[in-house]
Design a protein around this nucleic acid. Structure first.
Lengths: 335, 335
DNA sequence: CTGTTAGCGCTTTCAT
DNA sequence: ATGAAAGCGCTAACAG
């Protein structure tokens, strides 16, 4: 015997199904005080709990938002996820989450799952890949969208899909200029994966910024690797293997910068004095790392809020979030 | 017009609803090759996506696990959540997440929500509170459980509810002894909230450990505060205000220890040399903090895995996870 | 204000 | 192997 049904509650309260439904599940219709009380009492006594799937079916949607990230344990995604959850709960939505481990296919799987779940909308966080065949995603999105499903990307736009974007190129350029203005003249970049649009944008922006100050990064000082702490560590180790003083290093995200800092120390060098380094994102973790890391503050939580806003508000939208360069000790010139 | 229905697919394929259902949604029944192909084709062409709520209603459950944490951005919860998600995805379950911000009432709200959603089970992560009126939770759980809903606690047992527990007392005692064995003789504890069972257990365990080595923490050196980085910072600041060399400090979790380390530095003291400190949990963040923090490694992700296992396996269960003391630089004796 | 009654889309006996 | 039909629990017209 399963959970009590609305029917049983109605029965016990001696009212019709409709009446019970009206009092228990926020209908606009109003019910007489006497009956209302009887229904509530009956529900109490039976420990009634509305059958969500049945409601969802009858209503056509779920009050749910799907969230797709590649790795919830990565501080970047954690922050955005936290923002999404905050905003969603505020809007009375429930968040269902899926992780991809970086595999684009998993993204589609989850999208299909959420669609099938009849989620009100889906937030997909994570950089597009350069040369991505856009079609599969766009296709899915289109057919999902045609049937009222809403999708918001947090990364880069794909077609007309609503999107929350960070102005990576502009900010990376600003960082580059700030670094030059601090007196740095030699540079290296831990550039992340070659195909991630986010890392490419940051690299490009950084180069543009340098160029506007008549500086450049030598090709051999651009090293690619995974977008993770381990990737940063490996990239930095490789770089140091070729050149013990590569100049000021720009890691395209903080997590990589952290790995790189560890690698620098392990090589017997001192972060800042021997090898200045800057990151990107300003994840909260940085608060406890010494030397303090120069980086670009990106409003990650806010990105999550915006994504939910785009999902719940009518009409599309394309939000470009800015940020700000934060110079700290890891790039301070001591001479 | 909404999404295509199974009926439309069946129609287009020229078969019955039942047949279409059997081929599209993993039934045990088998269908002739010819029809099967026609159905699949029709589904393709129509971009059919099964209506999850309808399936859930017909089947009675959701293939969903609810996850309740107080704050997804706290590394402790992040790790456990990551473990839950890993295990759930492996088991073909989807995870739906709710946050409480530390308010016990929100826990009940979410529990109700998940129950209503007909989640297969719910994982509740987060310390019970001492003097909690167990009844509300236990009540809800009981009536949920009677109807086939499964709940697993990750923290401390409540009644007969399956639970994944960390042996906080034992481990805190081991830490205390290890610290004494390192030569420390004076101690202070940043003890967290007075009512959280986890913090109380760690405090008690620590005291027990000291006692077994004929040591103790003076009452004025036990300072309570929030279970967060800010709480650790505030507690440490307060402690230092009374006593610039309180001895070896035990922060009942790493996040607090991190806040405390910042406070120590801000007070112009040096972590380790002036103020030795140890934490608890061994969150990944510690990898990038200097001096390296002595702590107790707790298998957080594994706790998440175990929780899902308990949820999916028949029968109850009570898992007690152990951990290990990890002595690093923050408590090294230099004299 | 309250009750009747169709569905919502799918699964699952039960026949054939 | 396939189809017909009875629900699953709830909402939302539509009637009173």
């Amino acid at each position: 015997m399963g959970q009590p049904t609305l029917y049983e509650v109605a029965d016990r309260a001696g009212v019709s199904l409709a009446t019970a439904s009206r009092v228990l599940n926020g209908s606009t219709r109003t019910v007489g005080e006497a009956l209302r009380l009887r229904v509530m009492a009956a529900a109490q006594e039976l420990h009634y709990s509305a059958n969500g799937p049945a409601q969802a079916m009858a209503r056509g949607h779920n009050n749910t938002v799907g969230l797709i990230v590649s790795d919830i344990a990565d501080p970047y995604f954690t922050q955005i996820a936290a923002g999404v959850i905050e905003a969603a709960e505020k809007a009375g939505l429930v968040v269902t989450m899926g992780t991809t481990g970086g595999e684009p296919d998993r993204e589609l799987d989850h999208l299909g799952g959420f669609r099938s779940q009849r989620a009100n909308g889906v937030v997909i966080v994570g950089s597009r890949r350069h040369g991505d065949r856009i079609e599969p995603l766009a296709d899915h999105l289109a057919s999902y969208g045609q049937h009222g499903g809403r999708v918001v990307l947090v990364s880069q736009p794909v077609g007309e899909i609503p999107c929350v974007e960070v102005d990576n190129r502009k900010l990376a350029a600003e960082l580059a200029r700030a670094l030059v203005d601090q007196g740095h003249r030699e540079f290296a970049v831990l550039a992340g994966p070659t195909d991630l649009v986010t890392s490419r944008d940051r690299l490009t922006g950084f180069r543009n910024g340098l160029r506007s100050r008549q500086q450049a990064v030598p090709a051999e000082n651009v090293v690619h690797g995974a977008f993770t702490r381990a990737g940063g560590h490996a990239s930095m180790t490789a770089l140091l293997g070729r050149n013990r003083s590569p100049g000021c290093v720009f890691a395209v995200n903080d997590v990589m910068a952290l790995g790189a800092m560890a690698a620098i120390e392990e090589a017997g060098l001192q972060v800042g004095r021997d090898v200045p380094i800057a990151g990107f994102d300003d994840i909260p973790t940085l608060a406890d790392v010494r030397p303090t890391l120069s980086t670009v503050r990106v409003p990650l939580r806010e990105a999550g809020h915006e994504a939910v806003r785009l999902l719940t508000e009518p009409g599309g939208g394309h939000v470009v979030l800015s940020g700000e360069v934060v110079l700290r000790d890891s790039t301070a010139r001591t001479d």
